[in-house]
């Protein structure tokens, strides 16, 4: 073996961090937060350790679907600048290893969640992984510009899984939390798509900005925002909501609607002029929007806010 080939092999070998990166830790943080809120605001007591294990299982299940996504999308990732350095397209991890890790951790997380809490929660976690890895990644991502909308549903399930883990059953509140994240995802991603120069087109992934044009994307952002508002406010009138949540949600939704209208009313020439300030602003606001809505639900679950509860 020559020195050159030795060096080549060595730079390719994956470290532990490469396997962790397959689980998409940043996406995981959203999954952990929303699942935790779903678990905490649900009625009934969950032993803290069981709650911890449940959240861990949901996080690992989310990570497993991320690994499956990286396995299937390695060809797309290799063609886009943003994702070229990921472990599979960069050659540090073989596609088969990513598949093995994804399938293994999926089975493991579902089994452990079932044993720790209940089998309905485990079934919903399995469905979430299936939905993200198969329905979104394999079937729809490359075939429809509505991919963001459908993919958002997979990202919306964690609070439901958390709720079912705590209660063993579903409820209107849990589904409204799902609907909140589901309706929030399209405006959030499309605002990003407007100001980030992406190369999805080169990779053959249909994005709304490229298939239907940017004005249509601006219109879609406003339409989804209009559909999002009743969901966000409606949650305030359920058992998990309350005056604190509703007051915060009113402000956040007013700001979000204002941002969406600003983005809708201008064209790309105006956006270029101020370097996409409105689009960037809406994207940044959307991050706070989701975080604060779930944060307000947590506040409502504390004894302090309980005194102000709807009677």
């Amino acid at each position: 073996m020559s020195d050159a080939s030795l060096t080549d092999d060595m730079t390719r070998e994956a470290g532990f961090g490469d396997f962790v990166s397959l689980l998409k830790p940043r996406v995981m943080s959203l999954v952990v937060f929303t699942a935790l809120v779903g678990l905490i605001v649900a009625p009934g007591d969950v032993h803290p350790f069981i709650g911890f294990v449940a959240i861990l299982c949901i996080a690992i299940g989310g990570g497993a679907s991320g690994a499956l996504n990286m396995w299937w999308d390695a060809d797309i990732d290799a063609r886009m600048r943003r994702t070229r350095g990921r472990a599979v397209p960069a050659g540090r991890i073989a596609p088969g290893e990513a598949l093995g890790l994804g399938v293994g951790l999926s089975g493991f997380s579902v089994l452990m969640l079932g044993l720790a809490t209940n089998w309905m929660a485990a079934a919903w976690l399995a469905f979430t992984i299936f939905f993200y890895a198969v329905v979104y990644t394999i079937w729809l991502k490359r075939s429809t510009p509505q991919n963001i909308v459908i993919g958002g549903l997979a990202g919306a399930f964690p609070p439901l899984v958390g709720w079912v883990a705590a209660t063993g059953s579903m409820s209107l509140e849990a589904w409204l939390m799902v609907a909140l994240t589901f309706m929030w995802t399209p405006p959030h991603f499309w605002a990003l798509a407007l100001f980030v120069k992406s190369d999805y087109g080169d990779a053959g992934v249909p994005m709304l900005t490229e298939t239907h044009g940017r004005p249509a994307t601006r219109r879609h952002i406003l339409l989804y925002t209009l559909a999002l508002i009743p969901v966000a406010l409606g949650l305030g009138f359920t058992s998990v909501g309350g005056p604190v949540y509703l007051a915060g949600a009113l402000v956040l939704n007013a700001l979000f609607l204002r941002g969406a209208i600003r983005v809708w009313r201008r064209d790309d020439a105006a956006a270029e002029a101020d370097r996409y300030a409105a689009e960037r602003g809406l994207f940044k606001l959307s991050l706070w929007y989701l975080f604060l809505h779930f944060g307000l639900l947590l506040v409502e679950a504390t004894p302090l806010a309980g005194a102000l509860q709807w009677s």
Partner: peptide, 10 residues
């Protein structure tokens, strides 16, 4: 070192 890191991690 990298292998040791991986083994330790696992």
């Amino acid at each position: 070192h990298r292998r040791r890191g991986r083994n330790l991690g696992l």
